[in-house]
Amino acid sequence: MFLSDVTNNPLMEKFLIQTKEFVTWTQQNEREFFEEVMKINFFVPLVFLGGTLFITAPYGKFQWNSLRLPGKFAWLFQESFSPIVFIYSFFIKNLFSITIFTDATYTTTQIILASFWIIHYTNRVIIYTYRAPNIAPIHILPVLVAIFYNIINGYTNARWISLFGRDNYLYDENGQDICKTPRFILGVFIFLLGMMINIHHDNILFSLRNNLDKSTTKSESVKVITNTNSSSRYVIPNGGLFNYITCPHYFGEIIEWIGFVIATWYSYPAVLFLMATIANLVPRAKSNLNWYREKFGDMYPKNRKAIVPFVW
């Protein structure tokens, strides 16, 4: 009875008709739809940069004390949208269609690029969430922003690799797959190097957190930071690139996507993803550096930079 009332409602009926028309138009004109989404995507780095310059992202040590979601749940939920949308968009024949490219032949380049995306997010979504000793509660605002961006980002990068960038960018001037070209190999090397940097320094942080949770030893290098709802213990990270910068895990992620841009021959979605990553992580790294200097004072190394060794 309730379903019948809803479907017979004039407003709902109009909404369903318009939705059907939109889906039909998108299936027939996906290139135009893709370009419209890219216009939105173009402004994301600017929004991220403007937001992070004036507002410190409200999670981790900078969390707000209201409208918070459990950290591990929020992280797993928000980051899952990127690989799910990417996989769907990579294999689907037409957007909003249940038909996949059953007879499609993917090039080696396409398979490598798609695999890199899936591997990165498998680590970011599943492995990172499982291995992290804890993830601080996350305010609902960055969760919603992340979901919106991950949908756009996953879609545009997947469709560029699987469809729109294939003929003009993923083959060389002789019509050969670019997977053996020096540029593609260089991009792959840089991507893998960035991933190693990211994972290695995540491991250092995990080890520090585990030791802090298990140890009650007092040390001058350990600080108890009291927030409204909790008290957290922090230690100055050392080892690897932590000896030179505050956020080497952020640095590693930026290196990853620089490699991805090179490997995709400067794909527009990949370039915008790199710009959004830089706009998001660089101000956060600076906020972290300032926080450590404020909380630890002279104990924090004065020559340590925020995110780029010896530079910034």
Rank of each mutant, 00 (worst) to 15 (best):
L3S: 00
N210P: 03
I152E: 04
D202M: 05
N211C: 09
G259I: 08
C247E: 13
N8V: 05
S115Q: 02
K286Q: 14
I199R: 04
K72T: 07
K295I: 15
V6M: 06
I185S: 06
P10C: 07
L241E: 10
E294Y: 14
Y106R: 05
F116S: 01
F90G: 01
S97M: 07
T216L: 06
N8W: 07
I119Q: 06
F91N: 08
F206Y: 14
V6S: 00
L241G: 09
T217M: 15
T7P: 03
T228H: 02
S232W: 07
T108F: 15
P309I: 02
L46W: 06
S219Y: 08
F15Y: 10
K302V: 12
F251A: 13
H200T: 12
V308L: 14
E21C: 07
K20H: 12
V125Q: 10
W64V: 12
I204L: 04
I254Q: 01
F77A: 11
A114H: 04
S66N: 13
P283H: 07
P182E: 11
K214L: 15
T99F: 07
Y292D: 02
A114G: 12
W312V: 08
L113P: 03
N229W: 00
I111D: 01
I100E: 00
C179K: 13
W25A: 03
G175H: 06
Y171A: 00
I161M: 02
I112G: 01
A104S: 04
L16N: 03
N168Q: 14
N123W: 09
Q28H: 11
W64M: 10
F273N: 05
D298H: 09
I245T: 08
R209G: 04
I111A: 05
F184C: 09
L212V: 12
G51Q: 13
R284D: 09
I190V: 14
S97W: 04
I55E: 07
G239P: 09
N227V: 05
I135V: 13
D177M: 06
S80R: 02
S232D: 15
Y149W: 15
F116Y: 06
S80M: 06
K302I: 14
Q63C: 06
A74D: 09
G60F: 11
N157V: 01
A279G: 11
F34H: 06
A158V: 07
T107S: 13
W291A: 10
R284N: 12
N203V: 11
L274R: 03
E32P: 00
A104T: 01
S231P: 01
F43R: 04
G154A: 03
T226S: 11
D5G: 04
L49E: 08
S4M: 13
S66W: 10
C179N: 09
R304F: 03
L281N: 05
A306P: 02
N303Q: 12
P10H: 11
W312M: 13
T129C: 02
M12T: 13
N290P: 00
V44H: 05
I111T: 13
S231H: 05
M275F: 14
I199C: 05
Y155L: 15
V145A: 15
N29K: 08
D213A: 15
G240W: 04
F62R: 08
P10G: 05
I118K: 00
L113R: 01
S4Y: 15
Y300P: 11
